[in-house]
């Protein structure tokens, strides 16, 4: 059973993946996200940190046994268990398919759309409109897949659900207002099922779905 | 042992990952990349294809048993074997770490730098200069990691080497001229070791390292 420390800044959806995986596996995970254990922008620039994590990026994991990992998907995989990872080559390949899908198809348009509403990036009308169209395509693919399924792979929660749900957190909290998500009921049903699992709730707390699409925060 | 068909356009580095994995595992893989088996832009728009692969993207894999996968990393994982995937939770997490590293840290700057030299995209001086700096950082991380290692994870070739090497193919063929790659000898040694493995050579043929950095193809 893994035991170690996860370095991150607070409220990092990439770190949530690893924290939720640890809730399922029972791995003993300490989260270092605030002083004095960890200060983003300082601790991750120290020689000691860079020696273990040469890019200085977070989330970063250091096992009590000294085993170090960077890249959030790898950390969540390691802190999970065989059920979460997919117990057969077909299931583990399908888990990896949705993990890749989250990073390559969801994160770029979700960030383009949401970041300006959080005031952390300039608003660009054309880019936002394109991002909305890309998000609709993603929701369409997921809605079709979830038409006959409760979870993305097999009959139980896996790293596929944890990864895709965490990559959509900001979307559902900030901009997917009821009228926008109305054509994709299977996805909202699936998302609400996931975030209400006790292992998700312990990490995420109460996840309130967006009532009114946030506009960019000038 | 998996057996099936890989749909792609010719010379697709993302498809090479799956093809090389199959060389190691012995999976029976048919590649459909030209007419009449597959025409990119036509076959992947037919209802039959979209029914199995809703995004219509390639590479896409269909097993003789009907099992379908999209996302190139998932296909390579499925067509590989336990040695390539990493036989322990630590090794499989490290493999996933480098697979994620390739997609998040290598592919974006490599595409930005190389696409204009292939005529795929407009040249943008500022973006290209930034991409060169990002590639230097990537090469630095890899060079340090490979200082004491022959391969990225453990003592043998894994999906980490296959994925990272394939994501760097265009870089080494098009733009990493001797003076640019001189500060990173461990990476070039590792790359040449990989592409000279018989399983890589069967798929890639002879890989000639760039002699003169290609400029954009106006």
């Amino acid at each position: 059973m893994a035991a170690g420390t996860l370095y991150t800044y607070p409220e990092n959806w990439r770190a949530f993946k690893a924290q939720i995986a640890a809730q399922y596996s029972g791995a003993a995970l300490k989260v270092a996200s605030s002083a004095p254990a960890f200060t983003f922008g300082q601790t991750n620039r120290t020689p000691a940190f860079l020696n273990n994590f040469p890019q200085g990026k977070v989330p970063a994991y250091q096992g009590d046994d000294g085993f170090c990992l960077f890249e959030s998907n790898a950390i969540a995989h390691y802190l999970g268990n065989d059920v979460l990872r997919g117990a057969t080559p077909q299931a583990s390949a399908q888990v990896l398919q949705w993990v890749s899908f989250a990073d390559s198809e969801i994160v770029p348009p979700a960030s383009t759309w949401v970041f300006p509403t959080l005031g952390i990036m300039q608003f660009n009308k054309q880019a936002t409109e394109q991002a909305k169209e890309d998000v609709k395509k993603v929701l369409g693919v997921l809605n079709q897949h979830l038409n006959t399924r409760t979870f993305l792979v097999g009959e139980r929660v896996s790293l596929a659900d944890i990864t895709v749900a965490c990559s959509m957190l900001w979307l559902y909290k900030q901009v997917l207002e009821p009228s926008f998500r109305q054509p994709y009921p299977n996805v909202t049903r699936w998302f609400v099922t996931c975030v209400n699992q006790p292992q998700f709730k312990t990490v995420l707390g109460e996840v309130k779905l967006c009532e009114k699409m946030a506009q960019f925060d000038a | 042992m998996a057996a099936g068909t890989l749909y792609t356009y010719p010379e697709n580095w993302r498809a090479f990952k799956a093809q090389i994995a199959a060389q190691y595992s012995g999976a029976a893989l048919k590649v459909a990349s030209s007419a009449p088996a597959f025409t990119f832009g036509q076959t992947n728009r037919t209802p039959a294809f979209l029914n199995n692969f809703p995004q219509g993207k390639v590479p896409a894999y269909q097993g003789d048993d009907g099992f379908c996968l999209f996302e190139s990393n998932a296909i390579a994982h499925y067509l590989g074997n336990d040695v390539l995937r990493g036989a322990t939770p630590q090794a499989s997490a490290q493999v996933l770490q480098w697979v994620s590293f390739a997609d998040s840290e290598i592919v974006p700057p490599a595409s930005t730098w190389v696409f204009p030299t292939l005529g795929i995209m407009q040249f943008n001086k500022q973006a290209t200069e930034q991409a060169k700096e990002d590639v230097k950082k990537v090469l630095g991380v890899l060079n340090q990691h490979l200082n004491t290692r022959t391969f990225l994870v453990g003592e043998r070739v894994s999906l980490a080497d296959i994925t990272v090497a394939c994501s760097m193919l265009w870089l080494y063929k098009q733009v990493l001229e001797p003076s640019f790659r001189q500060p990173y000898p461990n990476v070039t040694r590792w790359f040449v070791t990989c592409v000279n493995q018989p399983q890589f050579k069967t798929v890639l043929g002879e890989v000639k390292l760039c002699e003169k950095m290609a400029q954009f193809d106006a």
């Binding site: 800044y9 607070p10 409220e11 990092n12 959806w13 990439r14 983003f40 390559s104 994160v107 770029p108 348009p109 960030s111 383009t112 970041f115 959080l118 005031g119 952390i120 990036m121 880019a127 394109q130 890309d134 | 356009y9 010719p10 697709n12 030209s34 025409t39 990119f40 832009g41 998040s104 840290e105 592919v107 974006p108 595409s111 930005t112 696409f115 292939l118 005529g119 795929i120 995209m121």
Partner: peptide, 30 residues
């Protein structure tokens, strides 16, 4: 803390690159 996600490296241009790559290889295949 709200600012931290802004320091993440996101490939905002990805759909533009995917589109360009698709068009290029469709031309080649065509």
């Amino acid at each position: 803390a709200v600012n931290f996600p802004g320091q993440e490296k996101i490939w905002f241009e990805k759909s533009r690159y995917d589109e360009a790559e698709r068009r290029f290889f469709e031309r080649v295949a065509g």
